[in-house]
Design a protein around this nucleic acid. Structure first.
Lengths: 222, 222
DNA sequence: TTTGTTTTAATAGTAATACTATCATATATT
DNA sequence: AATATATGATAGTATTACTATTAAAACAAA
C-alpha cells in the first residue's frame, strides 16, 4: 500500500490519556501488542509490560484504566484500520459484486504489514483479534460497554459491507448476519487451522478460507 | 423427548474425580452451571461455589483441578448431549437432506430443558456454551489440551454432520468449514441478538437464525 | 532564572484469586 | 473394631489488578 501517513483517529472514550500523545504511550501500545500475542491476554499484565518497556505499572494506568480497556482500544484501532482499507478497496469500483469480493478478501486473507502506521504491528494485532477479541465482548458488561460505543467501529464495518450486499440483492433478508458470520467465521477458521485442524479444510497455500467464503456469500445472496 | 434415562459418559481425563460418583460431585456440576451463567466465567470462583453448595473450596479441587478444567468438562458434556440428540434426530431418516436440516435445526434453535439428565440444566448450559466456550480454547495451552482430547466431542459432532454434507454432495470441498461456521455462527448470532443487535437481523419469533443457516447451507453445497 | 505545571517513577498497600498443604473429622466398608 | 475413603476447616503462598501517595524529572511560561 502507498505510504500516505494516514492517521487513525480513536474515540477518546477508549483511553484515559491518548497513547499517541507521548513516546511512553506509543511504547505501551506497541509493546502490549507484542506481549499479548506472546503471553496471551490472561498472562499479560501491566506490571510485566512496565518492566518490558522500562517504565512503571502506575504510569500505564494513566493511559488505560485496565488491561480490558487496552484490549478494547486495540480492537477499535484494528477495525478502524480495516475500515480504512475497506474504503480504499471499494471506492471507484463500480461493480458491487467486485466491491463485495474485495471486502471478503480483506476479511479472509492473511494480514500483511502496513508501514503507514509505524508503532503498530498489524500482523500481530490481527493474531490478537483472532485469538482474544471474543474475550472482549463476552463479558458481563457488554451492554454497558456497547452503549458507550466500545464496539462501534466493528459494527460500522459490518454495516458498510451489508450495504454492498443490499446493493446486489435488495431483497436479501440477512445481510448483517451474513457479514458477521463471514468475519467471525474467517477468524475461527484461521485459528482452527493452526490449533484444531479437524474443524477446517484448510490446506497450505490454497487460499481455502477465501475461496470458501467468497463462494458461500455469492451463492447465499444470489 | 422420551424419558430414556440415557447416561452421558465423560472421558475420565476430563476430571480428577468423577463428579457423577457422589452427591457432592453432582452438586458441584449443577451449581457451577447456575453460577457461571449468573456471574460469568471470570467472576466465578471455587470459593464462591463452595459457599453456595455449603461445601469447601478444597473439596471441589478434588473433582476438578481448576475452573478451566470444570469448564472443559461442561463443554464436553454439552457436546456429548448434542451428539446424542443428533443421532436421535438422524437415525432412520433416509434422506440426507432431511438429516442435515435436522442437524442445523439442532444447532440453531433455542435449547429446551431435557428431563433425562436431572442434575444438568441444559438451557443454562447452552447459554454458557454460547458465552464462554471461546475462552476454553483461546488459550496458550490449546495444542497440549487438544492432544489430551479436550475438544474431541465437539470435533466428533462436526465430523458426523460433515459426513452428511458429503453424502449430499461428495465433491463439496469444505464440509468441516461449513459445519463449524454454522455452529459457531449460530452461537454468535444468538449472543449478538441479545447484546449487539447491529450485527444481526434477528427478529423475535421469526426463527431467522434457523432460516438463515438452513438456506445458506443448502445453497452452498448445491 | 525562577516558578509552575505536567509527566513519569517509585513505593506501599489492599482485597481478591487460584491455588497447595496439612490435619481433623465424619462416613462407609471389611 | 479397624481401616480406608471422603469431606471439611484452616492456613499459607505467589500473583493479580488495582489505588494512593509522594517524589523526581522534564518542560514551558513569566
Amino acid at each position: 500500500m502507498e505510504n500516505l501517513h494516514i492517521h487513525i483517529a480513536i474515540n477518546p472514550s477508549l483511553y484515559t490519556k491518548n497513547p499517541e500523545s507521548s513516546d511512553l504511550g506509543k511504547k505501551i501500545v506497541c509493546k502490549s501488542i507484542e506481549m499479548i500475542d506472546e503471553l496471551g491476554f490472561e498472562a499479560f499484565t501491566f506490571k510485566k509490560l512496565g518492566i518490558a518497556i522500562g517504565s512503571n505499572e502506575s504510569s500505564i494506568y494513566r493511559y488505560f484504566e485496565s488491561k480490558h480497556a487496552l484490549l478494547i482500544y486495540l480492537i477499535n484501532w484494528y477495525w478502524s484500520w480495516i475500515e480504512y482499507k475497506l474504503v480504499f478497496a471499494t471506492t471507484n469500483v463500480v461493480s458491487p459484486n467486485e466491491r463485495l469480493d474485495n471486502a471478503i478478501k480483506l476479511f479472509t486473507e492473511q494480514v500483511e504489514a502496513d508501514n503507514s502506521f509505524t508503532f503498530i504491528n498489524e500482523v500481530l494485532l490481527n493474531k490478537i483479534i483472532i485469538s482474544e477479541s471474543a474475550k472482549a465482548y463476552h463479558t458481563k458488561d457488554v451492554d454497558k460497554e456497547n452503549e458507550k460505543g466500545f464496539y462501534k467501529t466493528y459494527k460500522r464495518v459490518v454495516q458498510r459491507v451489508s450495504n454492498i450486499v443490499l446493493e446486489i440483492n435488495p431483497r436479501f433478508e440477512f445481510p448483517h448476519m451474513l457479514i458477521s458470520t463471514v468475519i467471525e467465521g474467517a477468524h475461527h477458521q484461521r485459528y482452527f487451522s493452526k490449533h484444531l485442524p479437524a474443524l477446517t479444510d484448510v490446506e497450505e497455500g490454497k487460499n481455502n478460507i477465501l475461496r470458501f467464503y467468497t463462494d458461500l456469500v455469492q451463492k447465499t445472496i444470489a
